[in-house]
Design a protein around this nucleic acid. Sequence first.
DNA 1: AACCGCCTACCTAACGGACGGTAGGTGAAT
DNA 2: ATTCACCTACCGTCCGTTAGGTAGGCGGTT
Lengths: 200, 200
Amino acid sequence: MSVAVDRPAREAAGGGSRRLILDMAARLLRQGGYHQTTLREIAEAVGIRKASLYHHFASKEEIVEAVANDGVRFVHEAVVAALAATAGAQPRQRLEAAIHAHLTALHDHGDYTSASIRAFAFGAVTVPESVRLTRRLYDEVWRGFIAELQESRTLAPERAPETLRYFLLGAMNGSIDWYRPGRFETRALARELTLLVAAR
Amino acid sequence: MSVAVDRPAREAAGGGSRRLILDMAARLLRQGGYHQTTLREIAEAVGIRKASLYHHFASKEEIVEAVANDGVRFVHEAVVAALAATAGAQPRQRLEAAIHAHLTALHDHGDYTSASIRAFAFGAVTVPESVRLTRRLYDEVWRGFIAELQESRTLAPERAPETLRYFLLGAMNGSIDWYRPGRFETRALARELTLLVAAR
DNA sequence: AACCGCCTACCTAACGGACGGTAGGTGAAT
DNA sequence: ATTCACCTACCGTCCGTTAGGTAGGCGGTT
């Protein structure tokens, strides 16, 4: 059969078919959401038959769940790293670094992060418990950091921290709808947004 | 049949079945997006058979399009009215009124506006030309108003107006994911967001 | 070194069910 | 008599999922 021909190509792509499946699923989920994205499409993009996906994942739900969780985790880890890297710096610098990290990760792993935001936008398909947890963990990072900003008076203490967090994450995540690599620069975007949040 | 029983109830609800269909479609689209929402569900919610929908609309696409356009228009008209009502006032007051109008309309017609944002999030189903136009018209309102804010120095002229508009709309529209009538107050939200955009 | 059993990674074929949409009919109101 | 608003019945298509099979590789026994 013709199967043997493209197998090396698949295995060369990182060794694991699992990652390849998730890559393709993320790409399709980003542009189609949960219900428009079909297992046939994913399988075709990978180069295998639809039923073969069940060798790696138990269900469609499990694939989407993995993509969504990875998407949040990419951003989470990037922001935590940025905050760690600027540990001693001025609060405003740390804020800009965190925002920049969020935007950069959002864009660099755009398929995963967009798929995560898109496929499980609130109210759509029931958000799996694991995804809800992953998101809550990331939320916690910002909750803590915003508290830190208020303690250091970088952010006025009378500002509602929860509202600010929602607005900030909304502004950043909304960028998946309009950000294009050539038209914008993440550094400039991060600087603008930092000026909004922490006025001098 | 049992059909005759609930017909009065239907006709009492505003006279037009068309509006009722759109109301139900909006509600379902809000929580399910385009592909999860089926004509069967919409018909059942209205209390008619699926095929009867085709007496009022030519296709599923046409229903969704009508909902999405109405959603944007509700917000558009509310913001334009708010700007008109505060015509002579201070720019910062006008800004807060516009933001408040956007948030209020977003919530008051939540099914329509959420459906519009959700069903046609970028990349998902191809956005119909009419919806794209309706959105562009609303964008224009903010483009003009932000220019006005910069002319009056309420907003620093060196700020990138396009980026600001994107962040602002992202922050506001993101509220459909977290806003709950009891937990937040639109006045307070508008004030907080105004403080972010136009720092004293 | 030949064999065996097992595992991995895929395959073909089919399942029941739900989808959007169409054809054509009915009964009441104008 | 015509129109309106809705009906029943059905179409072909595609969905996620399952059943069951096969080809190749790897490790241990003979």
